[in-house]
Nucleic acid binder design. Sequence first.
DNA 1: TCGCTAGTTGTACGATGGTTCTAATTGAAC
DNA 2: GTTCAATTAGAACCATCGTACAACTAGCGA
Lengths: 190, 190
Amino acid sequence: METIDRDDAEHTDGRFARGARRRSEIIEATLAVVTRDGAAGVTHRTVAKQAGITTSLSTYYFTTLDDLLVAALTSVADVYTARIRQIIDTPGDKLTGLAELIAETAGVGRERALAERELATLAARRPALRPVARRWRENVAELCATLTDDPVAVAGVVAASDGLCTAILLDNGPADPGYLRAVLHRALHH
Amino acid sequence: METIDRDDAEHTDGRFARGARRRSEIIEATLAVVTRDGAAGVTHRTVAKQAGITTSLSTYYFTTLDDLLVAALTSVADVYTARIRQIIDTPGDKLTGLAELIAETAGVGRERALAERELATLAARRPALRPVARRWRENVAELCATLTDDPVAVAGVVAASDGLCTAILLDNGPADPGYLRAVLHRALHH
DNA sequence: TCGCTAGTTGTACGATGGTTCTAATTGAAC
DNA sequence: GTTCAATTAGAACCATCGTACAACTAGCGA
């Protein structure tokens, strides 16, 4: 997505730009592998095959497997961050927006959410990754802060959002945004 | 913990009893490995080394790695089930009991909770494991059902319990049972 | 005592994976 | 055009892993 630290948007194509594109292609392929086979299925070889490149090219861009997983987790967290920020910045019922975002977990967003969760579990063992994994919660908290002043209420909604996602992933059924909103609303207002 | 389906508590020692003991020793070793290196670190060899036995003995009791992981997840879920059931059956403030159980996640129970979470993530990709992974939520729901009739409130507390555990694991700091109880209490009562 | 089976060991085969290395190719700068 | 670093390909090394297998030990029932 972004250019590497090499130069500043001087070349839109060419060596450096292609390198940056490759990099994001590899991250995308990594997420596809995580989606299909889980984090355990991520190897330089499987990622390379998924991306249609050679194995050594994967190691060229991400020296160690860990580098690759960290980059993938960061990337997926960025997507969620953007979604939440969009809800915050959009006028209207923010709670409904949050409920719909959570409901997405059951549909199109299921695989992404699964990948995100799988990678977040990895984060528990890597202190360097914790801030990234925490971002989702902090963003939800920020959203809640626009709706109430009660810190306990904020904590409750953040925890409930997380738990609802888990429930949806485990139940594997369709999620009713209206119901989700009701639970969140109840957690928010006394 | 239990005897295998062979015979019924006829021998407290000897071949069969020792076999059952070995089995639970191996499961214990598996959880220790998950705690130390994560679920990805679980191999027949690492588990065997942790248990102080030979590799082939691990495969003797658990033919495939999957069998081993399933057994380990089931075992850890059993512990939590027992804890919750104890809270339900104990007279007194059940919400405080639940809050204290959650707070444990930050202390002595941290590694166990981490292992449980790691294994639960695995469950998302193995339908056969989902019922086991769901038990925790069902038990919390059962506990809540003794406190309220509102299904939305129950869903809120269950989700909040789960989310609070996640938060504690991520924040890696001490958890205040009183604060946890306040969040749960707020989720429960309107 | 003796056969049987659970428990146990050591070893090995085939496969996979992380990582490294070398050589080729290509685009950018001059 | 020449030079140089970024990029790509191909192969290989070495470790580990899942699993299988044959042999050996010892408790259990008769």
